[in-house]
Nucleic acid binder design. Sequence first.
RNA 1: GCGGUAAAGCGAUCUGUCGCGGGGCCUUGUGCCCUGAGGAAAGUCCGCACAGGGAAGGGCACCCGGCUGUGGAAAGCACAGUAGGGAGUAAUCUUUAAGCAGCGUAACAGAAAACAACCGCCGGAGUUUUUCUUUUUUUUCUCCGGUAAGGGUGAAAACGCGGGGUAAGAGCCCACGACGUUGCAAGGCGACUUGCAGCGGGUACGCUGCCCGGGCCUGCAAGACCAAAUAUACCGGCAGCCAAGGGCUGCCCGCCUGAUGCCGGGGGGUAGGUUGCGAAGAUAAAUGACAGAUUCAAAAACAGAAAGCGGCUUACGGCUUUACCAUUUUU
RNA 2: GGUGAGUUGUCCGAGUGGUUGAAGGAGCCUGCCUCGAAAACAGGUUUGCGUGCGAGCGCAACGGGGGUUCGAAUCCCUCACUCACCG
Length: 129
Amino acid sequence: MDARLPKTERLKGATAVAALFEHGKHTQAGCLRCKYLPRTEEGPSRIVVSVPKRSFKRAVKRNLLKRRIRESYRRQKSLLSGAWDLLIVYTSREVLPYETVFADMADLLRKMERVENKCFAENHLGENA
RNA sequence: GCGGUAAAGCGAUCUGUCGCGGGGCCUUGUGCCCUGAGGAAAGUCCGCACAGGGAAGGGCACCCGGCUGUGGAAAGCACAGUAGGGAGUAAUCUUUAAGCAGCGUAACAGAAAACAACCGCCGGAGUUUUUCUUUUUUUUCUCCGGUAAGGGUGAAAACGCGGGGUAAGAGCCCACGACGUUGCAAGGCGACUUGCAGCGGGUACGCUGCCCGGGCCUGCAAGACCAAAUAUACCGGCAGCCAAGGGCUGCCCGCCUGAUGCCGGGGGGUAGGUUGCGAAGAUAAAUGACAGAUUCAAAAACAGAAAGCGGCUUACGGCUUUACCAUUUUU
RNA sequence: GGUGAGUUGUCCGAGUGGUUGAAGGAGCCUGCCUCGAAAACAGGUUUGCGUGCGAGCGCAACGGGGGUUCGAAUCCCUCACUCACCG
């Protein structure tokens, strides 16, 4: 199992992030909210993590939560098939422990995988008919 | 033993598995090695260096600081000291600060707030009253003069207290004491302190000028370099050469220019990138997750580098060491 | 990251050392007018704590905390929050 998260799997650039905000589909699980788009070029899935300054004034808390989100994504990204651009936003106002974030990430990825497989199947049905 | 004051310091360490930023190595493996947050990285309150602007250097204006010495590139900086005020039983902490000249303010209250006579006190002149009359004394009022001892105020009332003195009074005189200032002597680099002698007598705050020291303005989103796409100043070539308009010229001819399209060159410059940038050094931004051990137990407090450095201020759990103060008990 | 400005009653806001707890406007309440209402006109209106049967009286508060001063919304220091600008 590949559980690494090198720099090539981070989404960068203001234009790319703006496009994700503009056109991305939306889903949610627990304390996490996600916007995603299928990746256009070749390559692995890419991720952006965001913790709002509105919720946490101190940079230490924001960094801690971003690390926890990245870690739980790194450990579970194999749940997701295909190549996507992901924007994950932390919505809770409290600093939740790692186990909670890990569980919510699992829910999020499974939910997303389920919805997208369904869409894929429907598209195929339409083509056949 | 308990409580306090000050100074200095720590801000976990180690092992295993997975993983992240930077650098190096070559056998280019998804490898190996090295390295990777703070005492405040914070607030941005001061200062510097560096960079740009001005052709550049200086002066004035303007701004900031103002007890003394030392350190320092400088600082609303540090250390050590001087003199007042405040807190504390004390150790100790905290706060303020130069000189000269001129000017202004002191609300309300109060007679008066800065060359102080409203009341009062005292003297003189007049008037009036008491008395049979005159003089003296006393009483009332007016005028002139003296006087800062007393007067509900107020933050502040013109050195304090005692004696002498006087018509009444007053540093007017004297003793003691406090304050300012000048000279001399002693101590100290100095601010200043102590002693002796002389002189002086209205407080607080502010503004202006003079004196000494510092300061151009803007800031790493400063600034330097490279540079797509699109539009395009300008230049060249080709096509177009029907022709509007313009110029030589008042008119005609003639000549020059010229709408537009294509190709090439080309400068500034946007996205973006490189640099500025470091023995941490990124560019949506790196230190984490899990398990275990250690100090009685709990790894907990405040908190995350975005250009660098010297300070200040603010936040902070748990401690360690040293010095000192107060108190209690025992010897 | 850097630079600058601000915070006063329910709201907008004036006030730059002294009868200011605070001008003015909006809002709200009462009266007048009307069959009823609006507009106009007149008057009132900060909050909290303490005390009093009550009218009232006392104290505190100009974002929080210190300092200077006889006296601070105003001057100085510090902390918090809000807004704007710089590619």
